[in-house]
């Protein structure tokens, strides 16, 4: 008997398999010098695309969707949301 009819719900997740979410972004977060490296943005980011590298937050733009949560939670208002060109 051919087993071609058998389908199983397994998948191997790969980075960007669903498309780069950066494509969705219309406003981007930009980290300014006021950043104190407190990691609040890292803790709140729903996509895991921002975090402190060295002493300052860094954004991973390929997957950042531009939701603005980081800018909102930043205690020193160090993140500015800038319109994409």
């Amino acid at each position: 008997m051919s087993l071609e009819y058998q389908v199983f719900p397994v998948s191997t997740p790969a980075e960007g398999a669903g498309g780069k979410t950066g494509n969705w972004r219309t406003v981007r977060p930009v980290v300014t010098d006021r950043c104190i490296g407190c990691n609040a943005c890292f803790l709140w980011c729903p996509e895991g695309t921002i975090g402190v590298v060295g002493r300052k937050a860094k954004v991973y733009y390929e997957y950042c969707k531009g939701c603005g949560v980081c800018a909102n939670v930043c205690p020193v208002k160090a993140i500015e949301m800038v319109m994409e060109q």
């Binding site: 389908v7 199983f8 191997t12």
Partner: peptide, 21 residues
Amino acid sequence: ETKESMGNIFPPIYYMKLRQS
């Protein structure tokens, strides 16, 4: 140890194929 996972979201056609299977 492997990257395989099960039960992730299946788009409509794939879901229906699984049901038929």
